[in-house]
Amino acid sequence: MKFAFFGSSLVSAYWNGAATYYRGIIRAMHESGHQITFYEPDAYDRQKNRDIADPDYARIVVYQPNEADVFRVLEEAMHADVIIKTSGVGVFDELLEKEVAKLGSQDKFVIFWDVDAPATLDRVQHTEGDYFRELIPQYNLVLTYGGGDPVINAYTALGARKCVPIYNALDPETHHPVEKEERFHADLVFLGNRLPDREKRVEQFFLEVAAQMPEQSFILGGNGWHDKPMSANIHYLGHVFTKDHNALNCSPKAVLNISRDSMAKYGFSPATRVFEAAGAGACIITDYWEGIDFFFEPGREILVARSGEEVGELLASLTEEQARAIGQAALQKVLDQHTYAHRVVELERVLSEEPVLSKAAL
């Protein structure tokens, strides 16, 4: 089956947290026999900060961020059996969402793939006259990378014909255990871009913890934190390219996951970095969100903290031996149940239930 994706970027993770998700799911789709073209705009300096070359599992089409070029690639995408608009492309989102929705009336199967459903739903539900509200029923299918029943029910209430989560997962080819590196040695590492709906939680679960534990060492990675006050025991890395993620996850005693407010609110929304870290065999400490136990067993495969104080308590009592055992248990769980190959089986099952696609080569 031929798929056309309109997304932020497949080849650059620069200010693009969805890159790992796209790469994992699209590689697995390719390995299952599908042909994928990924359309991405030349925007936000992502092309200047590529971290992979054009992959062999997808054809990459980079278009210019102007209306004429958007319509050019929309016309080209008509060759596909399934046309997908993802959330958060970053430029011409409204135009793309409206035009892709229109293609659904031209005998094309169209999907809205929401990689930030909590943010989309909050905007639509609280913004009077939001343009996307009337588009939702026009898509044949809404896919999300998290959210569980709260997101499914919210989309259904807004008129979605069908909404199915295709959760984040592990790509074992790209995220796996490697040798520790001294430059990433620390007691606790947090990697995440500075975003308004996560900053307060980062202060509580990471920055304040570090300030209260001067004998411990901390590493902070991600864009935007350069002017944020932080204690002397925090080493700030800035943007961390994906080629360094495995070493960053393998080298410290523990890796911290901090959800954005909206993700924690809806639950069942593990970040891609949770699976990246688990795939590297890292001991993960995560803030609490509903649905954690759907993916990992708390206390054995992951450590859960409901406050910054609990992060400090967990870190203070965690031995290297315990950390290794938890990391190995998490690695085994994701290999057994949470790879992108597992997710593509679910995706193909969902698509096979659609009458218009039932005879296609799935």
Rank of each mutant, 00 (worst) to 15 (best):
A117Q: 03
T174C: 14
T86S: 06
L121N: 00
L237F: 10
V345G: 09
I83Y: 03
V345W: 06
E313M: 11
V345S: 12
A278E: 01
H239C: 10
F295V: 05
V73E: 11
Y288G: 04
D336M: 09
Y266R: 04
R324W: 13
R343I: 03
Y145I: 15
A280Q: 03
V344D: 02
P196E: 11
I302T: 02
A157M: 12
Q106K: 15
A341D: 10
S251P: 08
L207T: 03
D56P: 08
K108T: 03
E203P: 12
G159S: 10
A186T: 09
W113H: 04
V255C: 13
E75V: 10
Q328H: 15
A117W: 02
E182S: 13
D336A: 15
A282E: 03
W113V: 00
R201F: 13
F5I: 00
P172K: 01
P355G: 13
I152A: 07
D42S: 14
A341R: 08
V356K: 13
N153Y: 13
G146K: 03
E40R: 02
K85A: 15
G221K: 01
S9P: 07
K333N: 08
T339N: 08
P118Y: 01
Q106S: 14
V89Y: 00
V62S: 05
C283P: 05
F6E: 01
D56H: 14
A154G: 10
V189S: 03
M263L: 14
R349Q: 13
V178A: 02
P172F: 04
H175M: 05
H235P: 08
P270G: 04
T319L: 08
H175Q: 10
G148H: 08
E94A: 12
E179H: 13
Q337I: 05
T86K: 02
A361I: 14
G222M: 07
K98N: 12
I326K: 02
E215G: 12
E203V: 14
F92D: 02
A186R: 00
V202G: 00
V110S: 04
Q212W: 07
R324I: 07
R123T: 11
F132V: 10
G88F: 05
S251G: 05
G291K: 01
A119I: 13
I302G: 04
P55A: 06
S259H: 09
S262R: 15
V73Y: 11
D227Q: 15
A68E: 14
I258R: 01
